[in-house]
């Protein structure tokens, strides 16, 4: 047993590496490897020639940094008869993701704000309905949604796919913002009303600036969710607006000739790059946003 009251104790307590600590670090290391290894294999493979790949040394480094497969993946890989790479899909995804993210986040902020502070009649019921709606698998809504967008004349169009993403994103963003605003003291809202500000004035002059961390979190979640979406893009976007994920799939599953693993890996990394960069850039904000409200400010 260690003496809990050593006579020489003075100043800072010495740090000791216990077995529990070592075990913890070992677990973290293994977990990190588990996730990093596939990424490593993909990046390494994307630089290898087909000859190297066939030599079946999956973990070895490429003999030289050959960017040609990346170039091919971007601009000339074939999906069926179209040989334009994933670049067309990239720009389609941008055109879908940017408006759908901005709209779903801003609309969620407005509805969350209205539900938190103005509490219109039936707002509790409405909030319950929205929450439940957020938990129902969206596949259930697919067919009704196809009919609805068709009736609106928006099926197979850019506007249609953006609308679908906004609608399916709203439960989550409303929930996030409602709970974020619930942590803001209601006196702040009352003070602004006494000062004469109305619904929109309080929203854009007071609540929106206060919700910057949540805007980042909701924006990031929506952006990655919409960028990574496959099903909705496939069903609602139409042939001219297919997002990057769908085109990636078409390239990888094209079965004519030999499978170009290097090109496929490069195309996949390219597709995953956007959400990855977004997380790296906004990581600090993201953590701040998801812990916001947990500590009283």
């Amino acid at each position: 047993m260690r003496d809990p009251f050593p006579a020489t104790a003075r100043g800072q307590r010495p740090q000791r590496l216990t077995t529990a600590r070592i075990g913890l670090y070992a677990f973290l290391l293994i977990a990190a490897l588990f996730f990093l290894l596939p990424a490593y294999v993909m990046i390494v493979t994307s630089f290898k020639s087909m000859g190297e790949i066939r030599s079946a040394q999956i973990f070895s480094l490429p003999q030289m940094l050959d960017w040609s497969y990346w170039l091919e993946a971007w601009s000339s890989a074939c999906a069926g008869v179209n040989c334009n790479g994933v670049s067309v899909g990239f720009w389609n995804s941008v055109k879908i993701t940017v408006p759908a993210t901005i709209l779903s986040v801003l609309l969620g902020a407005v509805t969350g704000y209205a539900l938190s502070f103005w509490k219109p009649p039936g707002s509790k019921l409405l909030f319950a309905a929205i929450t439940i709606g957020g938990f129902i698998p969206l596949q259930i809504f697919l067919f009704p949604m196809v009919r609805a967008t068709a009736a609106l004349g928006l099926y197979n169009s850019l506007a249609g796919i953006v609308l679908v993403h906004v609608v399916f994103g709203l439960p989550l963003t409303t929930l996030l913002f409602r709970n974020y605003y619930a942590a803001i003291p209601v006196e702040l809202f009352k003070a602004a009303r006494v000062d004469g500000a109305g619904f929109w004035r309080i929203f854009y002059a007071l609540m929106l600036p206060l919700s910057l961390p949540m805007l980042v979190v909701a924006g990031l979640m929506q952006m990655t969710g919409i960028w990574n979406d496959f099903l909705l893009g496939l069903v609602f976007a139409g042939r001219d607006n297919l997002p990057m994920t769908v085109q990636l799939n078409n390239i990888v599953t094209t079965t004519t000739g030999q499978r170009e693993y290097n090109v496929h890996m490069a195309a996949t990394v390219l597709t995953a790059l956007v959400p990855l960069v977004a997380y790296f850039v906004s990581g600090r904000w993201f953590v701040r946003g998801i812990t916001a409200g947990s500590v009283k400010g």
Partner: peptide, 17 residues
């Protein structure tokens, strides 16, 4: 509230942060 000619001071100050 704005038409009543009143001003209000709250316990939590309620200043716009």
């Amino acid at each position: 509230p704005k038409d009543r000619g009143i001003g209000m001071v709250f316990q939590s100050y309620a200043l716009y942060p």
